[in-house]
Nucleic acid binder design. Structure first.
Length: 215
DNA sequence: GACCAGGCACATC
DNA sequence: GATGTGCATGGT
């Protein structure tokens, strides 16, 4: 988008003014955040929260404990989050990645630079661009922008970008027009999700949307 | 009962 | 590169 950098900041300011700070991501530890990122793929967050609570109650919200579990048993616990067989495999792929790259520690993983981590995460089967960027931004505090279905829908519905953009193109637009600021990226994405959930839904169309009349 | 939800891999053209 | 399909539960 040929839109100047000022416009991107204005979009953020408008959303922040409308909704206030979102305090994302929900999760007490970086590992819980990363796990949530995988489990919420194309899935309502409420279903994911239920699974995370079960894991927490059983003392399983831990890389070592999860890796020790029988795969079928893991899948059974993930059931409420949907795609449970698929997600059990994806979680296990991530655990293997974590062990091989950082001895199972997200704190140690965070010591590596973004430029190295992003391609490495994307190489994990089951971790695509949105999941990778969510883990990087919210669990590892790396300055990468998270694009999701809400982001596409909001920007295209309000004619802020052409709807032909790819994930990477839209991500670059945000990053090229905003400073590499982790809290800013975290809030911005969270605000877009908030807007998407409350107003910019598939049906009915936006009513009373804070972006009406903007720019 | 249809539609939706903070995707991804894989096949096919 | 674009498009179609399978994966699955739970809320509205």
């Amino acid at each position: 988008m040929a839109r100047p950098a000022k416009r991107w900041r204005e979009l953020y300011d408008r959303l922040f003014q409308a909704f206030g700070p979102q305090g994302w991501w929900p999760g007490e530890t970086p590992f819980e955040v990363a796990l949530g990122a995988i489990l919420t793929q194309n899935t309502n967050w409420g279903n994911v929260a239920r699974v995370l609570q079960t894991l927490k109650d059983r003392g399983l919200l831990d890389p070592v404990a999860l890796a020790r579990m029988d795969p079928a048993e893991l899948a059974a616990i993930l059931r409420p989050a949907g795609y449970y067989n698929l997600k059990a495999a994806r979680v296990r792929n991530f655990l293997t990645f974590l062990r091989e790259h950082a001895g199972g520690s997200l704190e140690r993983l965070a010591e590596k630079p973004l430029e190295e981590l992003r391609p490495a995460l994307l190489a994990v089967k089951g971790i695509g661009p949105e999941t990778a960027d969510s883990i990087l931004l919210y669990a590892l505090h790396k300055p990468t922008f998270v694009v999701d279905a809400y982001t596409f829908r909001i920007l295209s519905r309000h004619d802020l970008v052409p709807d032909s953009l790819s994930y990477e193109e839209l991500r670059r637009l945000f990053m090229d027009h905003l400073p590499a600021d982790v809290p800013l990226y975290q809030e911005f994405h969270a605000l877009l999700v908030r807007l998407g959930k409350e107003f910019c839904r598939p049906r009915p169309r936006c009513v009373g949307c804070p972006l009406e009349g903007w720019p």
